[in-house]
Design a protein around this nucleic acid. Structure first.
Lengths: 127, 127
DNA sequence: CTAGTTGCAAAGAGTTTGCATGGCG
DNA sequence: CGCCATGCAAACTCTTTGCAACTAG
């Protein structure tokens, strides 16, 4: 099953990649693209597809809202921190990520999934 | 505003505390307690209340489902690991948690929120 | 008594799906 | 052309809310 390069897909990709490091709800994306002629269902269908391809990461906010974040290739190899107050996202570097991985591996040989893990806290500016 | 000790609340607390370290959806809880005579709305209302009191932690699964987990007092001082495959929950000890906190604090003075943070990965048994 | 709590049913929010139309290749 | 993708609207799921009846203190 091949896949077609449609106008809507390209608009969606453009929008997401223009907002890296920001967690967006499907609704925000849909509202942003609706004026450009992308239907709600296409947004949902394509967000799912992009998630399957690993181009965006699906996660969830403290209240359970589903959130999507554009994910450059290079984001799969490190953990992210997120400030619970301002939402700022910080990318740990590979060395820091390895250090965390080392800690968790001492427990049941736990193998860290950096893609899915987000460490929450409060950044200095928000304190 | 004081609070009444009702039959429904006690059933809910009993049920939750009998299942520590397990993430439950509100629906699972509601289905389990419905036969005992607790209505769905009471389950939702009391889960919210318990979350406010810090007795349970609300989080979200990979697909965005809202999950609740009973949280003994002692769980607020350390991070949890969760296996993405079997769902097993591992409690890091305070020393390990401090080590992670130290790593993230080098970034923007980021102050770890151990209550909300869950590190995902795959446990040894599941590999 | 009297304020907090419950159950029900209806309303809401967010997401998914069926189907006919349209567009990429 | 053939197949995939789109748009629309209806269907769905999960959660919240209004209101009258109920109950703990």
């Amino acid at each position: 099953m091949r896949s077609y390069a449609t106008e809507q897909r390209s608009l969606l990709s453009d929008y997401l990649s223009s907002r890296p490091d920001v967690y967006l709800t499907a609704m925000e994306v849909a509202n942003a693209l609706e004026p450009k002629g992308v239907s709600r269902s296409s947004v949902y269908r394509n967000l799912l597809a992009l998630e399957g391809q690993g181009q965006i990461v699906r996660s969830a906010g403290p209240k359970g809202e589903t959130l999507y974040r554009f994910c450059g290739e290079r984001c799969s190899d490190h953990i992210h921190l997120q400030c619970e107050r301002c939402g700022r996202l910080v990318h740990l570097d590979e060395e820091e990520t390895r250090a965390v991985a080392a800690i968790v591996s001492t427990r049941d040989g736990f193998e860290l999934d950096a893609t899915r893990t987000v460490i929450y806290g409060i950044c200095e500016d928000c304190r």
